[in-house]
């Protein structure tokens, strides 16, 4: 890794912005903003009104096609569709599965990323570089392929079972279980987390680590008191991005998970298409979005914190 070392102190100084406001800047920022407002903001807003039982206007067609549509009974709408979803036993299982997978996979991804990052920062060498390069492979593999490859690998006639049966060991069929979803989400989330964490750890100046060594601190203590606190911002960012990505994942649970319970991403699609209950589908999307927003707040907090620490605010 030949990355240029950014000094923690220098970074804060360099990022200081000239305090002038620019109209041109605002205009330049408009195109992507308008695109997102129109094709994300607007549909999401319309969908939100739909979930509250506004069935006229743009929601008319969907309301006619869909089943179990709730119409608003108050001026602000109705929570009937939300009640539907929350009382649906399928949803309860899916929600638990989704949250559990998100939590477990994110934790494992972060631990792996920390392991590799610390290994590279403290010991380094060729082996560490090879290792990091290896973990980047999933970044370049389309999710569809990854999902399918993992599916066949852990399937009933897959490699794992073939291999272990040579020794007379009955390896379980992982494919179509919740564990397979976890494997898939970890597999696809690894590169980004490793990039964030590794680069965060690499940007810690040598001297800060060596001083701790000089002061008598051992390996574990240095990790605990110097490395992790100093790289906490990228670690939190890696964690939140990973969690948000996993929360909304669709292809991985579709290919790898069981029919029931599965992750909400798949269920949103099922409710929208197969079960033809669009309103409930949208409600689920908002529940996932609400969870993601909670995680996003942690992300924003981490960014603000890092800005404060380097004196940018």
């Amino acid at each position: 890794m030949t990355s240029t070392k950014t000094d923690v102190v220098a970074e804060g100084l360099g990022a200081a912005k000239a305090p002038r406001l620019s109209v041109v800047g605002f205009l330049m920022a408009l195109p992507p903003l308008l695109l997102v407002l129109f094709f994300v903001g607007l549909p999401v807003l319309i969908a939100f009104t739909f979930s509250l039982g506004f069935t006229t206007g743009p929601n008319r067609v969907l309301s006619m096609i869909g089943q179990e549509i709730h119409k608003k009974d108050q001026w602000w709408g109705t929570f009937s569709a939300y009640k539907d979803v929350i009382h649906d036993p399928r949803f309860a299982g899916d929600m638990r599965t989704t949250l559990a997978i998100t939590f477990i996979s994110t934790t494992l991804v972060l631990l792996m990323a920390l392991g590799i990052g610390i290994y590279q920062r403290m010991i380094g060498g060729r082996l560490a570089s090879v290792m990091t390069a290896l973990t980047l492979v999933p970044l370049f593999v389309p999710v569809v392929i990854a999902a399918w490859a993992i599916h066949t690998f852990y399937a009933g006639d897959g490699f794992m079972r073939s291999f272990f049966s040579q020794f007379g060991i009955e390896f379980p069929t992982v494919t179509s279980t919740v564990s397979a979803i976890a494997i898939g989400t970890i597999w696809t989330s690894l590169p980004f987390a490793i990039l964030m964490v590794t680069s965060g750890l690499q940007s810690i100046p040598d001297a800060l680590i060596e001083t701790a060594q000089d002061a008598g601190a051992g390996f574990i203590r240095i990790i605990r008191t110097v490395l992790i606190p100093l790289a906490i911002t990228p670690i939190v960012i890696a964690g939140t991005f990973t969690a948000i990505g996993i929360l909304g994942s669709f292809t991985i649970p579709l290919f790898l998970g069981p029919n029931q319970p599965t992750m909400l991403g798949v269920e949103i699609s099922n409710f929208f298409g197969a079960y033809n209950r669009p309103q409930q589908s949208i409600v689920m999307a908002f529940i996932v979005f609400a969870s993601a927003s909670g995680i996003a707040l942690i992300y924003i907090w981490a960014n603000v914190r890092s800005a404060k620490q380097s004196g940018r605010i």
């Binding site: 305090p19 620019s22 969908a47 909304g248 699609s269 979005f289 993601a292």
Partner: peptide, 29 residues
């Protein structure tokens, strides 16, 4: 530096964290 620069970046991020599959369902209309 323009008014809402940070809001712009965070807004794009928020849009990105809406579950894709939900967005695609919503966008049909």
């Amino acid at each position: 530096n323009y008014v809402g620069r940070k809001t712009f970046l965070i807004g794009l991020f928020a849009a990105n964290s809406f579950p894709k599959i939900g967005l695609f369902a919503s966008i049909a209309t």
